[in-house]
Nucleic acid binder design. Structure first.
Length: 570
DNA sequence: GCCGTTTTCGGCCCGACTGTTTTCAGTCG
């Protein structure tokens, strides 16, 4: 599954960590971190690039290109091996403990021979840190607590879970008297598929009531830190950070707390080049110290000579360069979604009836909806030819009740281990559209899985490949396939790829979807709803599509009905 | 170690909070 790019990105990040632990130049650490991100996000596979071409990757110069080249040819980087010999892997692992960074980790290793989280815990209990410079009683306590947190939580959750918690907290803080504005920022605003913590921003003249309301929320299990304007708490699922700013700083603060860290470093560098300083308090003129912009995010970007950049793009993965050139994509939005092309009813594994699902889709203002229940090869769903035909009749009869919305009758076919799907061509021809998905045999070899998906694309009745990687966040790994090969098959056959919007799927993931976009492919963003509330999950699919830089033209369910129907008939 | 509409050398993002350091380093975001 892993591209060589990801493998090398991990190695460069490890090299950066080891330089930091061994007390190397902090700027060098940053360079390797930046290079790791650049390589990981580079659209081309680096395995075919020579040193010259490698230097064409942003933040990769002669030295790092040589290391990558060495790895491609020998599967090792000798400087990295030398650092590994000096610093046991467990010492790097130590820095994953909250409050324990590279400096303290190295002190622990050098002064006490501590080389793992386990040995750190033992050493603290045995009193072996006593007398160690910089390690007082409170530090010991914090480290023990950090180890506990690491073993228990330390896990990211899917965006649906985080969004529910965040929206609840935002609503409660917004209701506090004196709160001018309140919003979530961070990776949640950037619509990442998994969330490690929630960042909440509030504006008000007096921070005290907001901080008090925040720390006394019923979901709070522990207050980690509490200052004048900044407060961190733990909840059973995630850490939540609140920052309170003055109303006039709202735009600058939102820009800062939305991140990503890498994006912020770039925007601050741009500010420095313009003799400006950018912080969460605003854009300042370095010479005069005057505040130039801070009220709105748009103002902040404008002072940097940039258009406002949509949060899902803010990963330093090309958005700064595109913004400078005026070439930011015209992103697909929730408002642009005209219909849902993948929903289930209680005829198979859905919870709601056909009538309920269609009524709910209509209430969302959709211009069309496709009912796509499972097909017979998914045996536990007990679908039959007769049931499918009967449902088609029901769908046809319902049409009169929804003059403003087209009702399409489709199916979610099962892609068998060999790439075959349910039903013969003459039966498939009766559907308005067919989504085809992998539901079993997830562990086939890359070659088998690739052939399986390519064969499904080649079936003339398959319009869309559903949840292509089959991943379930936190529960099932994506299948292993040669995605470039699959994308070429999609391009050849005109098959669209689904971005399944179910929050624990988000499949295709954004990274793969962006690569698929480079092949000029088409996408369907679909809820895969199995109940009425699931239809609202569309927003997470849209967020994923935005992170993949998709514009409406690439997304078939933003198209007006006539264009969609023409595409389905091809 | 990378990079260049001030620079091929000399810069490299900014601030809050904590703990222990009697004036600031480490960590985090």
């Amino acid at each position: 599954m892993e591209r060589l790019n990801d493998e090398v990105a991990d190695l460069l990040q490890e090299y950066a960590d080891l330089i930091a632990i061994t007390g190397g130049d902090a700027f060098k650490v940053r360079v390797y971190e930046k290079a790791a991100r650049s390589v990981g996000g580079y659209s081309q596979d680096i395995s075919g690039l020579d040193e010259r071409a490698l230097r064409g990757i942003p933040n990769v110069g002669a030295s790092i290109a040589a290391k990558i080249d060495e790895y491609v040819h020998t599967r090792a980087i000798h400087q990295l091996e030398e650092l590994r010999a000096r610093v046991p892997a467990g010492v790097r692992q130590l820095t994953t403990v909250p409050t324990l960074g590279p400096k303290k980790a190295m002190v622990l290793y050098q002064e006490r021979g501590i080389d793992s989280v386990e040995s750190l815990e033992r050493a603290i209990h045995a009193g072996e840190l006593q007398g160690l410079h910089g390690f007082g009683a409170k530090t010991e306590e914090n480290l023990l607590h950090g180890i506990q947190v690491l073993s228990k939580a330390g896990r990211r959750v899917h965006i649906g879970l985080a969004m529910g918690l965040a929206e609840d907290i935002v609503a409660r803080l917004a209701a506090v008297p004196g709160c001018d504005r309140c919003a979530y920022a961070g990776s949640l605003r950037r619509m990442k598929d998994t969330i490690g913590d929630i960042d909440v921003l509030a504006a008000g003249d007096d921070s005290a009531p907001l901080m008090a309301a925040f720390t006394s929320l019923s979901c709070v299990t522990e207050v980690i830190a509490r200052g004048e304007t900044k407060c961190s708490v733990r909840t059973p699922t995630l850490q939540v950070d609140l920052r309170v700013v003055a109303r006039d700083s709202w735009g600058a603060a939102l820009q800062y707390f939305t991140g990503s860290k890498a994006h912020n470093i770039r925007t601050r560098e741009i500010a420095v080049h313009r003799k400006l300083k950018l912080s969460e308090y605003g854009v300042f003129d370095v010479t005069s110290g005057d505040l130039i912009a801070s009220a709105r995010e748009e103002d902040v970007y404008e002072m940097l000579g940039l258009p406002w950049i949509p949060p899902p793009l803010r990963e330093d993965s090309g958005e700064i360069e595109a913004a400078m050139l005026g070439e930011l994509p015209d992103l697909v939005t929730s408002a642009g979604i005209r219909g849902d092309l993948h929903i289930h009813t209680d005829l198979t594994d859905g919870l709601a009836s056909l009538e309920e699902m269609v009524a709910a889709a209509s209430a969302l203002g959709y211009a069309y909806v496709a009912v796509t229940d499972h097909a017979p090869n998914l045996y536990m769903q007990r679908m039959t030819d007769a049931k499918a035909l009967d449902q088609r009749g029901q769908v046809r009869r319902l049409r009169d009740a929804y003059p403003g919305m087209a009702l399409l009758h489709g199916a979610e076919l099962n892609i068998g281990p060999d790439g075959d799907v349910d039903w013969p061509p003459e039966f498939l021809a009766g559907f308005d559209l067919c989504v085809a998905s992998v539901h079993s045999h997830f562990t086939q070899s890359r070659a088998e899985m690739t052939r399986r998906l390519v064969r499904a694309c080649e079936n003339p009745y398959v319009t869309i490949i559903g949840h292509p990687t089959g991943r379930v966040i936190g529960r099932r790994e994506p299948v292993d396939a040669d995605w470039e090969e699959v994308f070429r098959a999609c391009a050849r056959t005109g098959t669209a790829l689904e971005i399944d919007a179910f929050p624990d799927r988000l499949d295709l993931p954004a990274g793969l979807a962006r690569r698929a976009r480079d092949h000029g492919l088409l996408f369907s963003i679909a809820s895969d709803a199995h109940a009425v509330p699931h239809l609202a999950g569309m927003r997470y699919g849209v967020g994923t599509a935005q992170r993949a830089w998709l514009d409406p033209d690439h997304v078939i369910n933003t198209w007006p009905l006539p264009r969609l129907l023409e595409f389905l008939r091809r």
